Computed example of a mutant assay.
Amino acid sequence: MAMENDGGTQINEQSVCLCGRIAAMRTSWTENNPGRRFLGCSYYGRPDACDYFKWVDPPLLNPRYKSVMNGLLRNANREADLEKKWQRRVLYHRLLLGILVLAILVQYGLWW
């Protein structure tokens, strides 16, 4: 079992949350803690989750690191949004082309 250090406290990777389940290792992508790992209830977001939370990584002390991490995250999100828009546009054009081909086939009686 590996151990992690949160700036002085040893944390067991198999830590148990307040409801008795093994805590899940997660990564924070908030502006204040980009890329910082923490342990939390494995049922986070569900009604039966507990409030267990413990940082694994120490805070980023250099503001430049936070700035760089947040910039990278914004770029990644922007690229993901552009990819989704592109996929929707391709789907729209394929649908439009299919309708156009179907209309031509029906108009010239080639559909039956």
Rank of each mutant, 00 (worst) to 15 (best):
Met3Val: 12
Met3Asn: 04
Glu4Gly: 06
Asn5Leu: 03
Asp6Thr: 04
Asp6Ser: 10
Gly7Cys: 12
Gly7Asn: 09
Gly7Arg: 10
Gly8Glu: 14
Gly8Trp: 05
Thr9Phe: 15
Thr9Ile: 08
Asn12His: 05
Glu13Val: 02
Glu13Ser: 02
Glu13Leu: 03
Glu13Gly: 00
Gln14Val: 01
Gln14Lys: 09
Ser15Glu: 09
Ser15Arg: 08
Val16Thr: 11
Cys17Asn: 13
Leu18Pro: 01
Leu18Phe: 10
Leu18Asn: 08
Cys19His: 09
Gly20Cys: 14
Gly20Asp: 06
Arg21Ile: 05
Ala24Ile: 09
Met25Ala: 08
Thr27His: 07
Thr27Ala: 11
Ser28Ile: 12
Thr30Ser: 13
Thr30Ile: 11
Glu31Met: 04
Asn32Cys: 00
Pro34His: 03
Gly35Leu: 12
Gly35Tyr: 10
Gly35Phe: 04
Gly35Met: 08
Arg36Glu: 06
Arg37Lys: 14
Phe38Val: 00
Phe38Lys: 00
Leu39Glu: 12
Ser42Trp: 03
Tyr44Phe: 06
Tyr44Cys: 13
Gly45Leu: 05
Gly45Lys: 14
Arg46His: 15
Pro47Ile: 04
Pro47Tyr: 14
Asp48Gln: 11
Asp48Ser: 07
Asp48Tyr: 03
Ala49Pro: 01
Ala49Ile: 00
Cys50Thr: 12
Cys50Tyr: 05
Cys50Asp: 11
Asp51Trp: 01
Asp51Met: 12
Asp51Ile: 02
Tyr52Met: 03
Tyr52His: 04
Tyr52Asn: 03
Tyr52Arg: 04
Phe53Ala: 09
Phe53Leu: 13
Lys54Asn: 06
Trp55Gln: 07
Trp55Phe: 15
Val56Cys: 15
Pro58Leu: 14
Pro59Cys: 00
Leu61Ser: 11
Leu61Gly: 11
Asn62Lys: 08
Pro63Trp: 10
Pro63Arg: 12
Tyr65His: 10
Tyr65Cys: 06
Lys66Leu: 15
Ser67Cys: 02
Ser67Thr: 12
Ser67Glu: 12
Met69Tyr: 07
Asn70Cys: 05
Gly71Ile: 06
Gly71Trp: 13
Leu72Thr: 10
Leu72Ala: 08
Leu73Arg: 12
Leu73Trp: 09
Arg74Gly: 03
Arg74Tyr: 14
Arg74Met: 07
Arg74Val: 11
Asn77Cys: 02
Arg78Asp: 04
Ala80Val: 01
Asp81Tyr: 08
Asp81Pro: 01
Asp81Val: 03
Leu82Asn: 07
Glu83His: 06
Glu83Ala: 14
Lys84Pro: 00
Lys84Ser: 10
Lys84Gly: 01
Lys85Ser: 10
Gln87Glu: 14
Gln87Thr: 03
Arg88Gly: 04
Arg88Cys: 02
Arg89Asp: 03
Tyr92Thr: 07
Tyr92Leu: 09
Tyr92Asp: 13
His93Tyr: 08
Arg94Pro: 00
Arg94Leu: 04
Leu95His: 00
Leu95Lys: 01
Leu97Trp: 13
Leu97Tyr: 13
Leu97Gln: 10
Gly98Val: 00
Leu100His: 11
Leu100Met: 10
Leu100Asp: 11
Leu100Ser: 07
Val101Lys: 14
Val101Trp: 09
Leu102Asp: 02
Leu102Phe: 05
Ala103Glu: 00
Ile104Pro: 01
Leu105Gly: 01
Gln107Val: 00
Trp112Ser: 08
